[in-house]
Write a protein that binds this DNA or RNA. Structure first.
Lengths: 261, 261
DNA sequence: CCGCTTGTTTCAAATAGCGGAACCTGGTTT
DNA sequence: AAACCAGGTTCCGCTATTTGAAACAAGCGG
């Protein structure tokens, strides 16, 4: 069934479930709050919280006894980010693109059918907007998401499609797998994807995939703007710059694939 | 007693040890590499890796079977970062300061006596330099580190001092607890700390703590430059701007403590 | 074909985790 | 004061989980 919270394998799984529960709260949580979810018996929950706490995955607030995510996660994530993703290589190119275009640029990758944002450079005037490194978002209604889905191999695409919620965020949101497949075909032809206010009203973007030598998408880059500042045609005009950046990143990722003078 | 690698408590502890070992490698690791450390028996290591992998904490490279840190960590860390630190509140102020001064600004906090960088804004011309969100560094020889140590309560300071390595990084590095305590006293008086090329040759900075209403340091902000561009006096001249930023951040963190018209 | 390295599975024994229930502790009601 | 309660901590016998030596696969070079 591939349930979101897969059947916990062993003690470690249970502990990570607790960690996730604390994360999901998004704020300091009291013992009794977690207990009230009826997911774990009292003593068990207590022990797991203890373990996670003295491992630094959680921090217990001395004052009120509440639990928060620990900073050890931030350290681990930094290493994950810099050794397991295209982010460190892409960084300078993201910089350059954002500076050249004067607009917000996002770098993202696909994780379990969802978009995971890896990096971002804000425009001078940062728009308040849903995004940030480490944040996850939907794939079916974002530029970066569609750009990556479009170039996914058959099998991966099918499993990714099953993970899409197809919720309606705006009137423009694509809400069926069929419609999305049409869109993806066009993106495949153009090599570029657009977000036509499909996720947030007033927010549009143009995106392009970053592909491995094998063709599989490793990530995507997008240039975001608002309808107040740009029309879709304006963004389309930035396509060449965007694609220069993505191909440069690909080249930096696969130096061997590009004969050097 | 609170050893750096505390005796693993239970299965969860062991699993996290494995995770840490993969992180420490800083690159995809083969099963046999981990096994060669003699830290875990074969079957045990195998099982732990399996568990971590299908929990998304690790990712196994299909091609070569190597293990890397998983992106789930990046997601969790984002939530830790935005709900367990001053970073989200400080963000806009960091932006503004970096823009005003045209130099690199760092936001950091203290974790187990080490400096943990939470955010950074680069100057137009980014200096290649040791730092980034999620990275850890020494406290005794960095501006942010000393700024926070200076305002730590007695007990916390003592335990923090015990965690300092006092390695010599440059000729200017402070290499004894005694000398550091002198320096901290001065910092306490001035409310500002300097890094006089104590960590990296040619890199200097000015830093100030961000303090809670109780006085305890919640983090620190620094403005970094190179000796090619600035002298210490030049940085000192930025002190007022820096302190404006830190007090603004404090105010944003404790709105109640500041009577509102 | 054989030896050698690397990764996977088995299985009985041992241990670590489990969780109901009892027990604190500090605050509020009767 | 005594009784009550809510939130948190500890006990302890039972059992499911973990353990790890050893056997098994699978690839590879000679």
């Amino acid at each position: 069934m591939n349930a979101p919270t897969g059947h916990s394998d062993g003690t470690v799984g249970k502990a990570l479930d607790v960690l996730e529960a604390v994360a999901a709260a998004g704020r300091p949580v009291r013992f009794s709050e977690l207990l009230a979810t009826e997911r774990w018996p009292k003593a068990t929950l207590y022990r797991l919280l203890q373990t996670l706490t003295n491992q630094g995955m959680l921090v217990q607030d001395a004052r009120e006894g509440t639990y928060r995510l620990g900073l050890r996660l931030v350290q681990l994530a930094h290493r994950a980010w810099s050794s397991a993703t295209i982010a460190p290589v892409a960084g300078p190119f993201v910089d350059r693109l954002a500076a050249t275009l004067g607009r917000t640029v996002h770098l993202a990758c696909l994780d379990h059918g969802q978009v995971l944002y890896l990096d971002k450079r804000s425009a001078r005037t940062p728009l308040p907007m849903y995004s940030d490194a480490g944040k996850v978002g939907p794939a079916y209604c974002t530029g970066v998401g569609k750009a990556m889905l479009a170039f996914l191999p058959e099998a991966a695409l099918r499993s990714a499609l099953r993970a899409q919620a197809f919720d309606t965020h705006t009137p423009a949101t694509i809400t069926s797998a069929e419609a999305l497949l049409d869109e993806l075909a066009q993106i495949r032809d153009a090599g570029l994807a657009f977000d036509r206010e499909e996720h947030e009203p007033g927010i549009i973007c143009i995106a392009a995939p970053i592909r491995a030598a094998t063709g599989e998408p490793l990530g995507a880059l997008s240039v975001t703007s608002s309808t107040l500042r740009d029309r879709l045609e304006d963004l389309a005009a930035l396509g060449p710059d965007l694609m220069t950046a993505t191909t440069d990143i690909s080249a930096a990722l696969h130096p061997w694939a590009h004969p050097d003078p």
